[in-house]
Simulated scan of single mutants.
Amino acid sequence: MPNCDPEDFYQLITNTANESKASCGLIFNTFEDLEGHELATIRQEYYPNIPIFPIGPFHKCSLTTSSSSSSLLAQDQSCISWLNTQAPKSVAYVSFGSLAKIDQAQFLEIAWGLANSGQPFLWVVRPELVQESDWLEVLPNGFLEALNERAHIVKWAPQKEVLAHPAVGVFWTHCGWNSTLESISEGVPMICMPCFSDQMVDARFVSDVWKVGLQLEHGIERGEVERIIRRLMVEEEGEEFKERALKLKEKAKLCLKEGGSSYQSLDGLVKHILSL
């Protein structure tokens, strides 16, 4: 919710929380092994008389395929062909969602930081991402050519397919909840650049609670970008993030199987609806 007045946003959240107390049940796009403590708090302190159904990750339950995607932008499948030519866990995937915007100076710092990291990168630069400019106008002449096919830029990507690709080693994200869950479900560590609303909390959980990513704490600066990519993808420290990310991936997978927490919660939801 960019450019939203803080008071209006606070009122929206307050109204949503209060009105939900009159519901017959609440469905959450999460799972017990990811947010068990938070779900317990919700049950005990906020909605003690309302059943809670954490049945996520939703996208793993959906029958939607890349060919029938609900995406508002056309997905460029060329990125999958390009990923097929890259080494395992070598690519930094960069996408800031459908609403975030950056200025020209930030765009250039990101571009140079990615280039200087030495890692191949897939960058989603959707229309209107760069304020008051086309990204091709901002990049220096010869920038992409100098990278010698180490970079691939598209307007929109089939994100779930990209994150599941074995070549992807890190995801630089705005930390919207859908993107965060998609990355967790594929065991991909994250670089966090939250922009507004719940993204701030999501990023803090990624970096400080689950410890499967790092935040850009000091703004967008090419040296910082290069360092954080190398920490996660090249240096020994990165192996710890990868191991924790893979453990969460396994938990996300198990929760949807028969007997898993989300499986049981979905079964409970169906029974609850039939009882109303």
Rank of each mutant, 00 (worst) to 15 (best):
Leu39Gln: 10
Trp177Thr: 07
Gly118Met: 06
Cys195Asp: 10
Ala105Tyr: 12
Asn29Arg: 06
Glu132Phe: 13
Ile13Leu: 15
Ala40Tyr: 09
Gly142Ile: 05
Met200Ala: 13
Gln215Leu: 15
Ser68Trp: 06
Ala17Ile: 15
Cys61Tyr: 05
Pro158Val: 06
Val138Gln: 08
Glu224Thr: 15
Ser117Glu: 03
Val212Gly: 02
Ser98Phe: 00
Thr180Lys: 03
Val212Tyr: 00
Cys255Val: 09
Glu45Cys: 13
Glu236Thr: 14
Ser66Glu: 15
Ser90Pro: 02
Pro57Gln: 03
Ser62Tyr: 04
Leu39Ser: 09
Cys24Trp: 12
Phe241Leu: 13
Gln106Asn: 12
Glu186His: 09
Pro88Cys: 02
Ala87His: 06
Ile229Pro: 03
Leu266Thr: 05
Ala115Pro: 02
Gln264Trp: 03
Gly25Val: 08
Gln159Cys: 10
Phe96Tyr: 03
Tyr93Glu: 06
Glu235Ile: 10
Glu250Lys: 09
Pro120Arg: 00
Gln104Ile: 07
Trp210Met: 03
Leu246Ala: 05
Met233Gln: 00
Glu7Phe: 12
Lys251Asn: 00
Trp172Pro: 03
Cys79Ile: 12
Gln215Val: 13
Phe196Val: 07
Gly219Lys: 15
Ser117Gln: 09
Thr16Gln: 13
Pro194Asp: 07
Gln75Phe: 08
Leu114Gly: 04
Ile102Leu: 07
Ile42Ala: 10
Leu274Cys: 14
Arg126Phe: 08
Leu248Cys: 03
Trp177Asn: 05
Glu109Val: 07
Met190Tyr: 09
Val270Cys: 09
Leu99His: 12
Val91His: 04
Ile27His: 04
Asp8Tyr: 12
Leu246Tyr: 00
Cys79Lys: 11
Glu250Gln: 10
Lys249Met: 04
Leu256Pro: 03
Leu276Pro: 02
Ser197Ile: 02
Glu161His: 12
Glu236Asp: 15
Leu269Cys: 04
Pro48Gly: 10
